[in-house]
Design a protein around this nucleic acid. Structure first.
Lengths: 335, 335
DNA sequence: CAGCTTTTTGCAACCGGTTGCATAAATCCT
DNA sequence: AGGATTTATGCAACCGGTTGCAAAAAGCTG
């Protein structure tokens, strides 16, 4: 049924090695044999079996793409960038949906069985020892959107969530908000913890500010809406830093229903700058996370590791900046 | 570096076949050897190489998941369902992002090289001969969200887009709208064509109605918004059937900006019923597409085909129904 | 315990490729 | 032209598993 090397060799009247060599870049074959082989291959509709060759070459060009964020629309943008970027470099994404799993055992085992050349863990919510487990199992790994650490155990690409937390407080202060609030995502997510930590740290530097803290159950519209509804039972703060855009949009919907005007009475600041944040009618002021750069950089790092598996681990951090839209008061005019 | 069958065999003091058999369900091994083997395997941290075994068994458990819809948030929901469903059945999704490709050649070749056991083409916009190309290359294929045909060449699971077009017109008529409009997605998408055809067909049965037709450039917010802005330069219709929810949401934003009240002055009907359609503040009346059932059914069909590759092709069609929300006038009270 | 069945085991060939090595063919040089 | 190099080719072993087959071991019967 499937046509193999042998069939081509027979038709072309050459040895199997000759066929194999004709299909490998830079192998020692004369132009004449290569031509014969290519002709025969074309006639038979042959294409080499990548899996069989991986057995001897030790490379499958398979990259595990591991994630647990299948409910936040920004991850569709991220998957798009990852899959395109990997494909452009001849790599194939093998997708692993963790669902609610938070231990690495299963995915490590599975990806080892499939001999992936590497794994990209794309998540901002997994525990810090998740990605290193791949490294320990001998799988080159890049942790995209992972927690920044000054002494990373594995390659990490993302933003400094602590700095984001600080940035939020600074922006609030600069715009004259005084009673401010942190409304985080799930408390177990490392990104939430770091943003929270940054928020608190910066708060200490602004004695004039008062802050309140709460957490939503998930990075989702419903969770944000519900949490804001709960908060609105008491007099609200003047500005909320929400854990994420989709959470912010949920919060905004609760504020609107409650007849609270944004940004006059209450300001909202998101994080991510997903496509939807810029939609007319939403117009969310948010901290931009440079996902395109993070993805590109993660893939570059992966490519580098394929050539040099023991590459010394590094953390790549990208700066975030505020995108001014309509849910936060403008900065007072300088002058 | 990697630990193989041979290592385990040596440690356990048995033959390589014995080890192989210990890891295959229902093979002929005594309990005693299996125990020895398992112990040795555990000590060495062995797990069998799925790719090597695929060479002889002819099964990789790899399923190509082919799509080009990486800009419509509903596809995140769809990917979530597919990846979970496949994983639960021990299958591994190999993701193919077509970007703007519309010819099957590349993906067929690639998936053949990786000896996938099957391919799921998940798209409502590809040309009708896309999925059959996999079949012709000997790859079992299911076309999810594909065009319904009474004589399918390959397994097709989805909705009857023609019926959806009719349903839209019927709903408009029942609610007393008279000047109605079809605002489709990209004209080249089969789903757009079918919804359009259904719309026109049903229109013929309602002599009292007047209709206008237009198409947006893509299934996206921006495209919907821009198209509605264009339409609003002339007096608008009373009700629009938009090609898709995200398109509808774009249209709604243009209507709102224009000060047009929905559903009083203009009604909007979407299609898909993605999560976002139900968000407070959007509350889009829409035709529900049962994506969970479509995905589950596609996977079932794939499983069936793995056992019986020449299975006679069938089309599975799921009914759609209107979800009543706030962007269409209610039905007049019966009585 | 012999004789017959059934179960377990190892051998060896195979899956579809790659690659080191020795040899054959082509090319270069004087 | 003849010898020295360089390039091209095929053989055979190997990658990490599976599996048909025959032989060995175990189980059963009387």
């Amino acid at each position: 049924m499937a046509v193999t090397l042998k069939d081509v060799a027979e038709l072309a009247g050459v040895s199997r090695s000759a066929v194999s060599r004709s299909f490998t870049e830079g192998a020692s074959v004369s132009a004449r044999t290569r031509a014969k082989v290519e002709k025969a291959a074309r006639e038979l509709g042959y294409s080499p079996n990548a899996l069989a060759s991986s057995l001897t070459t030790g490379r499958t060009k398979l990259i595990g793409l591991v994630s647990n964020n299948f409910h936040n629309p920004i991850f569709l943008e991220i998957f798009d960038l990852f899959t395109r970027g990997l494909q452009e470099r001849g790599l194939r994404p093998l997708l692993v949906n963790l669902s609610d799993e938070t231990a690495p055992g299963n995915s490590v085992r599975m990806l080892r069985q499939y001999s992936v050349d590497g794994a990209i863990v794309a998540s901002s919510t997994l525990p810090t020892d998740f990605a290193p487990a791949f490294h320990e199992a001998g799988i080159p790994v890049v942790n995209a959107f992972g927690r920044y650490a000054s002494d990373p155990r594995v390659h990490t690409v993302g933003i400094d969530n602590i700095a984001c937390g600080r940035l939020a407080v600074k922006s609030f202060a600069a715009r004259g908000y005084r009673r401010i609030a942190f409304m985080g995502g799930p408390e177990a997510a490392t990104s939430t913890q770091d943003r929270h930590a940054g928020f608190m740290a910066e708060l200490a530097a602004h004695p004039g500010l008062e802050a309140s803290i709460s957490f939503a159950g998930a990075y989702s519209f419903e969770a944000g809406r519900r949490e804001m509804q709960r908060l609105l039972q008491a007099p609200p703060a003047e500005a909320y830093f929400c854990g994420d855009d989709v959470l912010s949009i949920g919060a905004l919907s609760a504020l609107r229903d409650h007849g609270v005007s944004v940004p006059e009475e209450v300001g909202v600041l998101g994080l991510n700058d997903m496509e939807m944040a810029g939609w007319a009618g939403i117009d969310l002021t948010t901290i931009h996370q440079p996902i395109r750069q993070i993805v590109t950089s993660s893939i570059e790092l992966m490519m580098a590791m394929l050539g040099e598996p023991d590459r010394y681990p590094e953390a790549r951090v990208f700066p975030c900046r505020i995108i001014e839209r309509a849910t936060l008061r403008p900065l007072p005019e300088a002058g």
